[in-house]
Write a protein that binds this DNA or RNA. Structure first.
Lengths: 252, 252
DNA sequence: TGTACATCAGTGAACGCGCGTTCACTGATGTAC
DNA sequence: TGTACATCAGTGAACGCGCGTTCACTGATGTAC
């Protein structure tokens, strides 16, 4: 059912001009995405986008204020694309199967990264020289994956299936004590717990952080080609192994 | 004691001209390093290096064939710098204290990365667009850290302190079976074991791979600013926690 | 020791290229009366 | 419904910049006899 004409959606199309404008911006982002994929973030140029758009270079300044703003648009676009892929993957698993939800989250991150290596590099690779992402626009989309991960951990914790505490097999005798002894870390974890409104205890929140960075470490090595050529002929199997170990580590 | 003049070192200084040449190349690498640190790999330019060297731009072509060759020199230089730092850190610990050797390796990687973020980014960040590292020159220096890590694991295994096998607390019931069931992964691990001439069993070699990528994942997140600003006020403590968990995971 | 020649470092100009951004402008599309 | 004006998209030229790489050249430093 099309929306009634007398009640246009607040932010979407209003006048034909605004629709055209929104379409052009979308085209610019799309072309920027393509350019990013082919030449990398540092080589992204407004002039090249203008060329592909079939328009003189100065014309794009009607739509984006500067090259940096285009980069920001692409950054947000990429974060949301990844976030959507992860959300869809997580949602495809029953809400109480936390272990499998985590596995699907990890697989979705890897699949997206392999599909979109340049965009992944923009998000998780070396910072683009001379560019500083505006936190107020990138923080929310940039934290979607880790938020989803923490939700899974929190869900498991609330459901009581989370293997927490010092008696859990995966935690050696020495380690929880060490964690408990690090006061600033405990304070940071407490702040995170409050910020995200979750109840995961320190030990597992700290492990969750490690699981999070480990996931991206494994994906980055594969996407950026850090494994020697031909070292792993079966990267899928290696990653499945990693998922199993990390899920165990996260107490799932 | 200076070396005797009639027995000059084979590869080092021979004629004054060769010494001057070697010095200039070293200066170029040094300046390239500085440029890398300030502007990132993608912005590295022969002209800028020439300017800093106080020489006309075409003059540097007497020393390096192209911009890509300079990048390769810097890549090798950075890999070796990191490798030296890691080796020194590992060697500073008694040879039979494998756990502490691993901890020092990890700390050395992190310290080097925080000290040299741009060079770290060159090695472990997004690939430089348009540049392909020549494997014959970068493989050996590029594998120093992982080789050192595997040596530690192998040492622990040979010494019998490695907590290997299915009865080890850190390995959950389901996981080793899963690992054993992945045939291509087992083949890859076997090839690695033969290549590096070590005896670490599959389960722990696979975990070692995860520990390796996890280490760099954690370092990359910190160096590249993936943790939100101010999320971790005590990154040292977070990293120490990670070291403890990863050492446990690696069976150390 | 002295001369003749070869080697090499560095010069300076030039090639063709692409970049971000500004600015005055032309026309087409919308809006107000 | 028709006209007058405002808004906006897109043009084209220009600014100053930096880049990699080539090439014929000048001098200085080395080598052979």
């Amino acid at each position: 059912m099309p929306s009634t004409p007398q009640a246009p959606a607040g932010k979407q199309q209003r006048t034909p001009r605004e629709r055209a404008r929104a379409q052009t911006i979308a085209d610019i982002v799309e072309l920027g995405r393509k350019h990013l994929a082919e030449h990398g973030a540092a080589a992204l140029s407004l002039r090249a986008v203008a060329r592909d758009l079939g328009v003189v270079s100065s014309a794009v300044y009607r739509y984006v204020g500067s090259r940096d703003e285009l980069l920001t648009l692409l950054l947000v676009d990429a974060y949301n694309d990844l976030g959507d892929a992860v959300d869809a993957a997580v949602e495809s698993v029953p809400a109480d199967d936390f272990k499998e939800r985590f596995a699907e989250l990890a697989r979705a991150v890897r699949a997206w990264a392999l599909r979109e290596p340049a965009r992944y590099g923009l998000l998780f690779g070396s910072p683009v020289p001379g560019y500083r992402a505006p936190a107020e626009r990138t923080t929310a989309p940039g934290t979607r994956v880790v938020t989803s991960l923490v939700q899974i951990l929190d869900g498991a914790h609330r459901a009581g299936t989370h293997r927490a505490g010092t008696h859990r097999p995966g935690i050696s005798a020495a380690e929880p004590a060490a964690t408990a002894m690090l006061p600033a870390l405990a304070a940071d974890l407490g702040a995170i717990r409050r910020e995200l409104n979750v109840g995961v205890p320190d030990v597992l929140l700290a492990r969750g952080t490690l699981v999070w960075t480990s996931l991206f470490g494994a994906v980055s090595f594969e996407v950026f080609g850090q494994y020697g050529a031909g070292t792993f002929s079966a990267p899928d199997e290696l990653f499945e192994h990693h998922i199993a170990v990390l899920a165990d580590l996260a107490g799932l």
